[in-house]
């Protein structure tokens, strides 16, 4: 652990935690505009968090320690996962981070416990949410990992640092044009993983539609604040992956102050644009019935498989 890594640790985490709610706000704002509303203030997510922290935390009498520990666990897991996704610059080789599998399985760890809390209260909604969440994330998993397998075929590495290192040197799409297909697939992943339309509807608390929200229904106060933050960070990380792999221009190739600052600016810009794109996409589609969601994933899978076939038989 050298100083560079310490710097990376601090900067990466700070940027991720600080920026995550903002991106949530951007998506909401864009959606509101698309619906012809003025929408909430951009910084509303921050206000929400602050308010939640002050509110009373109610815990079900049926709940075990799992409910109480999961919010902290979620936020810790997401913060540790942050280290695997370089937002601004690359810290050099580390023995612990950057592994694709580690990254996604850390997310899965958080998911696992969140699903458990859904069952912990003994309510109907929570169980339903867990069930749907675990089912959908299970069938999403092959798509996620296949995407990275394809990247491994392209970049001859399965390390996030390694991939980002290559792309940041090479510029946009200079590596392989077929990656556009992959980018589209990755967009599907982001939409699905962050519980957005058409997979899930973050806005409603209707029994028919909700997945993610049902699981966190029992949480309140600071627990809810932590869960929301964790969720926001997850969204940011996935977006960052997309940005750094498919739109890497501006990424700091050297950890100097100037280039890092530039990198931060470009990341901010790109992430806001991406968030806006997500918001627009969300506004343009309707919620799918639960059993039609695999079909949506199939679109992504088709794109990935197409890419792989192109790569394998080139």
């Amino acid at each position: 652990m050298n100083w560079l890594f310490a710097l990376y640790f601090v900067l990466n985490t700070a940027v991720a935690v600080a920026l995550a709610p903002l991106l949530m706000g951007v998506v909401k704002k864009v959606k509101a505009w698309a619906q012809g509303r003025r929408g909430q203030p951009l910084l509303q997510p921050y206000y929400n968090l602050a308010k939640l922290l002050r509110k009373e935390t109610v815990v079900s009498s049926n709940a075990s320690w799992v409910t109480r520990a999961t919010p902290y666990l979620s936020i810790s897991v997401l913060i540790v996962a942050t280290l695997s996704v370089p937002l601004l610059f690359l810290p050099g080789k580390t023995s612990a981070f950057g592994n694709v599998i580690l990254f996604f399985y850390l997310l899965a760890l958080a998911n696992f416990f969140m699903a458990l809390t859904g069952l912990d209260g003994g309510s109907t909604f929570g169980g339903m949410g867990s069930s749907r969440e675990m089912s959908l994330s299970a069938i999403l998993e092959p798509l996620v990992l296949l995407t990275f397998l394809t990247l491994a075929f392209v970049f001859k590495t399965f390390d996030i640092f390694g991939i980002v290192g290559t792309t940041s040197q090479a510029g946009i799409f200079s590596v392989d044009p077929v990656l556009i297909l992959l980018g589209a697939a990755f967009f599907v992943i982001i939409v699905a993983e962050t519980a957005r339309l058409p997979v899930d509807n973050p806005e409603t608390h209707l029994e028919l539609t909700m997945v993610h929200e049902a699981m966190v229904l029992e949480h309140s106060g600071k627990h809810l604040a932590l869960m929301e933050t964790a969720h926001a960070i997850k969204q940011l990380l996935l977006m960052a992956l997309f940005i750094n792999i498919f739109l890497p221009f501006g990424f700091a190739t050297q950890p100097t102050a100037a280039s890092v600052a530039l990198s931060l600016l470009s990341f901010l810009a790109k992430s806001i644009i991406l968030a806006a794109a997500i918001g627009l996409f969300e506004s343009s589609v309707a919620k799918l019935r639960l059993y039609r969601v695999p079909g949506f994933y199939a679109v992504g899978t088709f794109l990935v498989v197409l890419t792989i076939i192109l790569e394998v038989f080139r």
Binding site: T57, V58, V59, S60, S61, N62, T124, G221
Partner: peptide
Amino acid sequence: ALRNVGKRRTCETWS
């Protein structure tokens, strides 16, 4: 950090 933030209450599951 959050040990003293907010109150805590135990209550039946909301149905």
